Amino acid sequence: MSNVSIAVVVGSLRKDSFNWQLAEALTKMAPPGWQLKRVRIDDLPLYDQDDDAQQSEPVQRLKAEISAASGVIFVTPEYNRSIPGVLKNAIDHASRPYGKNAWAGKPAGVLGVSVGAIGTAMAQQHLRNVLAYLNMPTLGQPEMFLQAKEGLFDPDGQIGQASRAFVQGWMDAYVAWVKRHA
């Protein structure tokens, strides 16, 4: 496969987010011909089913970007042992109205980074439940629970030496997952 576009949805709005750093570092780990494109979710209105018949421009843009992608990588922080509201809001928008689910069939990858020792394990588990309902085949192994600590990122913003092989292994598994579900 060449000229593959993967949508990257980051569940954080924080300017100096570790998850934004991880998403950026991943873009440089993709194989030749694969482009990871970050999808904007910060301008979406709060989901309201009353708006399904006339979705706003940001919602239409999100749905078009997801529809055009060959797969989706979710990079999520963990808020109160679950996914951030902004991420759930984006997921809800792109799955609606009923019967027009932009996520359906898109091979998904889930990962995240947090300052806690278990990374984003609970958020990822909750997200996997949602993705199963949305009919997204989701990479199960390897799981990627990263702790934000000294050396995770090098001075250039890339994955540090100690974690590089591990993260590259995840990326390679995700690439194979997308090919399997193409």
Rank of each mutant, 00 (worst) to 15 (best):
E78R: 13
L62N: 03
Y174A: 00
A176T: 08
R40W: 10
M1F: 15
A64H: 10
W20M: 15
F18Q: 00
Q49H: 12
V39M: 09
W170D: 01
D16I: 07
G151S: 13
V113N: 01
V4N: 07
I6T: 06
Q125H: 14
M144F: 04
L146H: 12
L26F: 08
G112I: 04
I118E: 11
L46I: 10
W20K: 08
S12W: 02
A53K: 14
G105A: 11
T120E: 11
I73R: 03
M136K: 13
L139Q: 02
T120W: 02
K106S: 02
A123F: 01
T76H: 02
V4H: 11
D154V: 14
A104V: 05
M136D: 04
V167E: 07
A132M: 12
L62E: 07
Q35R: 15
A90F: 08
K63A: 10
T138S: 00
M171K: 06
P97G: 01
T138P: 00
K88T: 05
S56Y: 01
L87H: 04
A7Q: 04
D43Y: 05
R180D: 08
K37M: 15
A94G: 14
V8G: 09
V59K: 00
G140N: 15
Q54F: 12
N19H: 11
V59E: 00
A64K: 03
L13H: 14
K100Q: 10
Y174N: 04
R96D: 04
L62S: 08
A7W: 00
N89D: 03
L36G: 06
Q147L: 07
S163V: 09
S82T: 14
L139T: 05
A132V: 15
D43P: 01
N135T: 13
H126S: 04
S17I: 12
R61I: 13
P107E: 06
E143D: 10
A53M: 02
G71N: 03
Q60Y: 09
A132Y: 10
A162E: 15
L131S: 02
Q49F: 09
S70W: 08
W177D: 06
P58T: 05
L62T: 10
M1N: 12
V75Y: 09
E65G: 06
L139R: 07
Q54L: 03
D48G: 07
V10I: 09
Q125C: 00
F18I: 08
T27M: 12
I118N: 15
A30W: 02
L152G: 14
P137R: 02
A23F: 07
Q158T: 15
V110F: 06
D51L: 10
D172T: 13
M29C: 06
K28I: 05
D156F: 02
I6G: 08
